[in-house]
């Protein structure tokens, strides 16, 4: 198990994971504060959590309702 973990090229994967996590956290914080979204909120939670990388971006572009 530890060997497999050590074999993963972390220099390559770590930044990707980092960006993904930041995006998810920012999107979720924003979602929890925003008054209303385009479409049901729970749907956006699922999209943000389960669609890698593109989910949070889609939320920021389409989901936020500009007042």
């Amino acid at each position: 198990m530890m060997e497999e973990l050590a074999n993963i090229p972390w220099a390559i994967i770590a930044p990707l994971i980092g960006v993904q996590i930041i995006l998810v956290i920012v999107a979720l914080i924003d979602l929890s504060k925003i008054h209303a979204t385009n479409g049901p909120k729970i749907l956006w939670v699922l999209i943000i959590l389960f669609i890698n990388l593109l989910g949070p971006i889609a939320y920021f572009i389409v989901g936020r309702k500009q007042s």
Binding site: P15, V19, L23, V26, L53, P56, I57, F60, R64, Q66
Partner: peptide, 17 residues
């Protein structure tokens, strides 16, 4: 407030990666 400062740079970073 509209989080533009956060997500637009992140999109660019993803494109760059």
């Amino acid at each position: 407030r509209s989080r533009k400062f956060l997500w637009i740079p992140l999109v660019f970073a993803l494109l760059g990666m």
